[in-house]
Each structure stands twice: as C-alpha cells, then as structure tokens.
Amino acid sequence: MALALNVNGTSYTVDVEPETPLLWVLRDNIGLTGTKYGCGIARCGFCTVHIDGQATKSCQTKVSAAVGTRVTTIEGLSPNSTHPVQVAWIEHSVPQCGYCQSGQIMAAAALLAKRARPTDAEIDEAMADNLCRCGTYIRIRQAIHRAAELNAR
C-alpha cells in the first residue's frame, strides 16, 4: 500500500503494509538509520522520533498513523548538530557507545520544547523510557540542564 510521509521536511512515498512500525520504514525503506531498534515494545526509547513535535516511540507507531504528520528524526533535528541539546551533549561528553543517544536526544529535545527549565524530577520522568546501557544518565541530566540554559540565551 502506497503511503505518503513527511520526514524531516522531505516527502516520501513508501509501499508497505500500513501496520508496519514507522521505525522500520524509516530505517529499511527510507534509509534513515540514525533511529535505532532496541526492543520493539517501546521499553528502551532508542527509536524515539518526533511526530508533530511530540516524542514518540517509532517501534510502536504504525506507519499509517504517521501519514499527514511531520516526522522528525535525529538526522532532521538540526543542520550541523546545532540544536542546543546536541551542543550540550557534546559539551558534557554524553555518548559512550552512542547507540541509544539518538533516542535520548530526541526525547530531551521534546521535553525542552514543553518545559523550558525542567527539574531533575521532570527530567527523570520524561526520560524514564530511555534506557542507556553504557550508563550515561548523570551526563544526560547535566546536559539537559545545560541545553535549557543554552535555549534561554
């Protein structure tokens, strides 16, 4: 079934079953591999993208539900890694293996769009579904506070 998608401002037509998770359409059909598979049950957050600005786990989002929306992936968050979250992530040296970080960054960016200066508790709540196996949580918290500061400038 041909479906029209808007991803990072570009229009794509994909021919897939409508129940296909958006994650796999992004990765295998469109070729945007920055969004990662981790669990397939929305429990790790590696696949987090924005749908109309909302942090969404793409592994549990049917592609048909993304038709008519604006999908943003890590590749489309900013040109040249200039989004405050990305800048803060580099400043605080957050990534280790890096595999979960696309999802972390997308979740953090969506949080900051809603809450300009989140508290630690709000960060913990918003990021609760984003697993990091390397254990970069301390730096994720620090970097979100830093990104909030950069945003305020």
Binding site: T33, T35, I74, V94, G98, Q101
Partner: peptide, 21 residues
C-alpha cells in the same frame, strides 16, 4: 581530551553493524 567519536554520536552519523545497507 574530548572523545573523538562523540560528535558522530549526536546526529545519527555514526554507523553500527545495525545500520549497514
């Protein structure tokens, strides 16, 4: 010294075995 791979890991650029096409 800042890690060299960090900038590749904030924008989806770093490639993993999972990303091969």
């Amino acid at each position: 010294v800042p890690r060299l791979d960090v900038p590749l890991k904030v924008n989806g650029e770093a490639k993993y075995a999972h990303d091969i096409r």
